[in-house]
Every structure is written in C-alpha cells, then in structure tokens.
Simulated assay, not measured.
Amino acid sequence: MADRLLTVDEAAERLGTGVRFVRRLVAERRIVFVKVGRHVRIADSALTAYIEAHTVQPARRGRPSYGRAA
C-alpha cells in the first residue's frame, strides 16, 4: 500500500505545531518531503521517522548524595 502524503497543514497538526515550523523543517531540509508541482507533501512514514529520531528518552537519576552523614 502506498504511503499517504500529508499537506503542510496536516503535518503541523500531527506534530502539534504551527505551519511555520513545518515549513522551516522543509526549507532547512531537516525532513524528507516530496514536491508535487509547486506543492510540498510530507510522507506519513517520513513524519513518523522524524518523530522517532527526535524522541528523547528520560534520564535515570540516582538519589542525591547530599544530606547523608559522612
């Protein structure tokens, strides 16, 4: 099955950001996109890959060392 191509508006909605942010990602070539004539489309899989690549795992912190008797 072919990958669905999203408009810039749809990509921005999925990311929870504004259209301007998505257009900046495209302009800086930080995300894979397709040009259909003069229109920009972003593949659903490319957006998923971008999200996975920029997901930050939580840091595991130990207990603080202050407050203990020496």
Rank of each mutant, 00 (worst) to 15 (best):
G16E: 01
G62F: 09
Y66H: 14
R63M: 13
R24E: 13
T17A: 01
V36F: 05
Y66M: 09
P58W: 03
R29L: 11
P64H: 11
E10L: 07
A12E: 03
R24P: 00
V36Q: 10
V56H: 07
A27H: 09
R23F: 07
F33R: 02
D44T: 06
V32R: 15
A46S: 15
V32N: 13
D9Q: 06
I42R: 07
R60C: 03
H54M: 08
S65H: 12
T17Y: 01
L6P: 10
R24N: 13
H39T: 02
A46I: 00
G67S: 07
L6H: 13
H54R: 14
A12G: 04
R23M: 14
Q57T: 09
A27Q: 13
A53T: 11
Y50N: 05
A69C: 10
P64M: 10
A2N: 13
V22E: 06
A43Y: 09
V19R: 14
A12V: 03
G37S: 04
R29A: 15
H39C: 02
R29E: 15
A49L: 02
L25S: 10
T48F: 03
P64A: 14
G67C: 05
A49S: 07
T17L: 01
A70N: 04
R20L: 07
A11V: 02
R20D: 10
L47Q: 01
V34I: 10
V8F: 09
D3V: 04
R63E: 14
T7C: 00
